[in-house]
C-alpha cells in the first residue's frame, strides 16, 4: 500500500455544493415560467443563488434542454456530435428535416410550430444518428422514421 498523499482542498472545495445543486432545478422552473431563459432571468437566478450570471449562463448554455432564445412549440434538436457525424447522419438528418419544414438549423417555422437546431451530443452515441423533440429522444434515425415523427407531430398540432 502506498502512503495516502496529504492533499490540499482542490477547486471543488471552493464551490458551495448546495448552490450548484439547486442551479439546474432553478433553471427548469424559470424556463417553465418564461418559456426561455432571457438575460434578466439568468441574472435573477444568479442573484437568488449567490452565483455570477456567467456561472449560470455557463450551465444554461451547456445543457441543450435550456434555451436562451424564443423557440417554436416543437424543438427538434439534431445531434451533430462525433458518433452521429461518423455514421454519416448528422448533416443528412438536419438537411432532410430542414428541407421538409422549409427552415435551416437555428430557425423557427413561420407558424411558430417547429424550431430546428443542431446540438452537440445527445449522449446517444451507440444508437446514432439521434435527435430530440422537446423531451423525447429518437434514435437510429432513417428517412422513413423521420417522416413518421414529423407526420405525427403535424397531426398533433
Amino acid at each position: 500500500m502506498h502512503a495516502e498523499p496529504k492533499v490540499k482542498p482542490s477547486g471543488a472545495a471552493l464551490i458551495d455544493p448546495a448552490k450548484e445543486a439547486m442551479l439546474l432545478a432553478a433553471l427548469y422552473i424559470a424556463q417553465e415560467q418564461r418559456g426561455y431563459l432571457t438575460p434578466e432571468v439568468i441574472d435573477r437566478v444568479a442573484a437568488r443563488l449567490g452565483l455570477t450570471a456567467g456561472q449560470v449562463f455557463s450551465t444554461a448554455s451547456f445543457y441543450t434542454l435550456f434555451r436562451t432564445k424564443p423557440v417554436g412549440r416543437y424543438v427538434i434538436q439534431v445531434c451533430s456530435g462525433v458518433s452521429c457525424y461518423l455514421v454519416d447522419g448528422a448533416e443528412k438528418v438536419s438537411d432532410y428535416i430542414g428541407a421538409k419544414l422549409g427552415i435551416r438549423p437555428g430557425e423557427t417555422t413561420a407558424d411558430g410550430r417547429f424550431t430546428l437546431e443542431t446540438v452537440q451530443c445527445l449522449a446517444s452515441c451507440g444508437t446514432a444518428p439521434a435527435l430530440r423533440v422537446n423531451d423525447q429522444l429518437y434514435e437510429n434515425l432513417t428517412p422513413a422514421g423521420i417522416d413518421a415523427i414529423l407526420d405525427r407531430l403535424l397531426g398533433e398540432v
Binding site: 438575460p39 450570471a53 456567467g54 455557463s58 448554455s61 456530435g81 452537440q120 451530443c121
Partner: peptide, 20 residues
C-alpha cells in the same frame, strides 16, 4: 468568476456574461 465556459463540445467558448 466572471469568465465562464459557454456552450459545449466543439462550440465551447470562453466568454463573459453580456453586460458584465
Amino acid at each position: 468568476p466572471q469568465i465562464g465556459l459557454f456552450e459545449r463540445g466543439g462550440e465551447t467558448v470562453i466568454d463573459t456574461f453580456p453586460g458584465q
